[in-house]
Every structure is written in structure tokens, then in C-alpha cells.
């Protein structure tokens, strides 16, 4: 099993990456505004299908803008200011610490993000350095990239047809350190993250406390796909995440091999048609779970050869 880690850590700075707001300032007032993001047809191909689906449904995004912790830049009503020099300096220092090659020119790019967590619909990010090294026990771990990017707005509510974000966190400078995929046990993954995280914090360049460091964990196994688990905040969770992901992968392999031995393939589903079972659901509309989740229509599909597999659990 291979584990890749992306560590995001908030730079200690008095301002945000593209404006002068101090995210620690208390607000005297909060303004609410409502937006919709839109992506032209040609760009949809490059976007996460789930996000694209949300957008097509006409998702309303509500933002809460504090008067001190955010300004017109976060509201996407003013062009970004020059990038924070202190953050660029911090990124270069980290790159040197990790013996990476710092690029000669920094180019900020846009990564399209349409779940509403960025008012613009994209995240501004720049690659600062390539090909670093970090000693973990007796191994030299390769650091693929070191990037400087803006943090996203914090999701505070998800309702029917809308999402609500607070702009305080939007634009806080983050340094992202991405490792190559490593052969690691769940425990080792946790220890590695702890070791790198501690080294970074010792530089004094970063914020401390909950939420100031977050990791994305990529797990892949031979014969399976890559799974990315985003925003893991605690180290203990890394161990669990990797462990569960490994178990889930093994379970899926078992399901797959069981299906193969039963001779089930895509072909087996060719004549299967969905059946409208909404009536059945309405009949049980007093049942609490049905009441909570059911509205509209329900369809059922016969799954040939799945006997005993549906309902089995990846982890006891």
C-alpha cells in the first residue's frame, strides 16, 4: 500500500495572501451576500463531477463577510493585491530547509473550485519549489512540490439548495508540501506526518493550534484506484484513515473476486431495468429514517449475483 501526504500549514503573517486583512481581528459587523457560480460548458470537463452537478442544480452560496476579517478582495469585488512577501519568504525558507529547488519566477495560477468555498470560483496557488528531501528515520523521503496557496472559506452550514461560508479563513496563506507516494504502514504514516509537522513548526514560521495544519491523505493499492481523503486535522486520524482505507480496499478486492468467480460482469446488467418503488416508500412514510430521507421518487435495481455481498461490511 502506498501513502502520499499533502500537508497544508498556515503561515504566521499579519495579513492574508492577497490582501491586508488580519484574520485574527474581531469583527464589529457581518454582511451577508448571495452568489451563484457558473462554469461554461467547455470547462465542465475539468471539474469534479459532483461539484459540477451541484452547480447545475443552481446552488446558492451565502457568504458571511466580517468587516475586519475580510474585505472587498475576499468578496471578489476587488482585484487581488500583491502577494504577501512574508509568506513567499516563509515558503522559500521551507524549500531551503527541505533542500528543494526554488523556481526562479513564481507564477500564481487558478485552480477551479466551484463548491463555493472560494468566492472567485478558483483557488490561487503557486508552485514555489520542486524536488526536496526529508529524512524520516533511515529513509530519505522525496518532497515532490512546495506550493503557496490561499486557504478556502469555512463551511458553516449546508441546507436544501444552499451552502453557507464564513470568509474569515478565505485567503489565509497556506504552504502545501506534497510527498511522493510512500510504502508506509498506518502507524508509519502518522509518525511521518508528526515528524514533518514538528520540523515545520520548529521554524517559527507557522501558526499553531487546531485547524492550522491539515493534511490530505492519498492512499493507493496495487490493482485499485487512488483515494484522496481531504482535510485530516489530527494525527491520530491519519493512522485511522490509512487503516480503514486499507481494509476497505481489501474488502473491495474480495467483493470483486467473488463477483468474478460467480461470472458477473457489466454484461450481466445489460437487461436490468430500474423499477419505481416510490409507493413502497410512501407506505412506510411513518418510519423515522424514511421520513427524514425520502421525498420525490425512489427506484430499485436488481443486482444479479450480489447475494450476500450487499450488506457485507468493509470493517467489523
Amino acid at each position: 500500500m502506498k501513502v502520499g501526504l499533502e500537508i497544508h500549514i498556515q503561515v504566521k503573517s499579519r495579513r492574508k495572501l492577497f490582501c491586508s486583512c488580519n484574520p485574527k481581528d474581531p469583527d464589529e459587523s457581518v454582511t451577508e451576500f448571495r452568489r451563484r457560480l457558473r462554469v461554461s460548458a467547455s470547462e465542465l470537463g475539468e471539474i469534479d463531477p459532483a461539484a459540477a452537478f451541484e452547480m447545475k442544480k443552481g446552488l446558492d452560496v451565502i457568504y458571511l463577510a466580517g468587516n475586519r476579517s475580510s474585505c472587498l478582495v475576499e468578496a471578489d469585488e476587488e482585484p487581488p493585491h500583491d502577494p504577501d512577501e512574508r509568506s513567499i519568504e516563509a515558503a522559500i525558507k521551507v524549500a531551503n530547509l527541505l533542500r528543494a529547488n526554488v523556481v526562479d519566477e513564481i507564477h500564481f495560477m487558478r485552480k477551479i473550485v466551484i463548491d463555493g468555498s472560494n468566492t472567485t470560483g478558483f483557488q490561487r496557488t503557486a508552485l514555489i519549489a520542486l524536488n526536496g528531501r526529508f529524512m524520516f528515520r533511515d529513509r530519505q523521503v522525496r518532497i515532490q512540490t512546495i506550493c503557496l496557496e490561499e486557504d478556502a472559506a469555512r463551511l458553516i452550514e449546508k441546507g436544501n439548495g444552499y451552502v453557507k461560508y464564513d470568509l474569515r479563513r478565505l485567503g489565509i496563506p497556506l504552504i502545501e508540501i506534497a510527498t511522493e507516494p510512500l510504502e508506509l504502514s498506518p502507524k508509519e504514516a502518522r509518525d511521518f506526518a508528526e515528524s514533518l509537522g514538528r520540523t515545520l513548526k520548529l521554524t517559527g514560521l507557522f501558526e499553531r493550534g487546531l485547524g492550522t495544519i491539515r493534511q490530505d491523505v492519498n492512499v493507493s493499492m496495487e490493482g485499485g484506484g487512488i483515494v484522496e481523503i481531504k482535510g485530516v486535522q489530527k494525527l491520530e486520524q491519519i493512522e485511522k484513515v490509512v487503516e480503514f482505507e486499507e481494509k476497505r480496499h481489501r474488502w473491495l478486492f474480495e467483493v470483486a473476486s467473488a463477483l468474478r468467480s460467480r461470472g458477473i460482469s457489466e454484461e450481466s446488467f445489460r437487461d436490468v431495468r430500474p423499477k419505481d418503488v416510490s409507493e413502497l416508500f410512501r407506505k412506510y412514510s411513518q418510519v423515522e429514517t424514511v421520513k427524514r430521507f425520502f421525498s420525490g421518487s425512489a427506484f430499485a435495481l436488481r443486482a444479479p449475483g450480489f447475494k450476500g455481498l450487499i450488506g457485507s461490511e468493509p470493517v467489523e
Binding site: V103, D104, E105, H107, M109, K111, L127, T145, C147
Partner: peptide, 19 residues
């Protein structure tokens, strides 16, 4: 003196041609 390259990971970087 520099070149802008879009890497396979999608990032643009500027590099000194003589480096």
C-alpha cells in the same frame, strides 16, 4: 532570460534558461 513552463501537474513556473 527566463522561460515559463506549464508542468504536467498543471502549475506554471518560471526558470532561468541557463539553470
Amino acid at each position: 532570460e527566463h522561460i515559463t513552463v506549464k508542468l504536467n501537474n498543471g502549475y506554471n513556473i518560471g526558470l532561468r534558461l541557463d539553470e
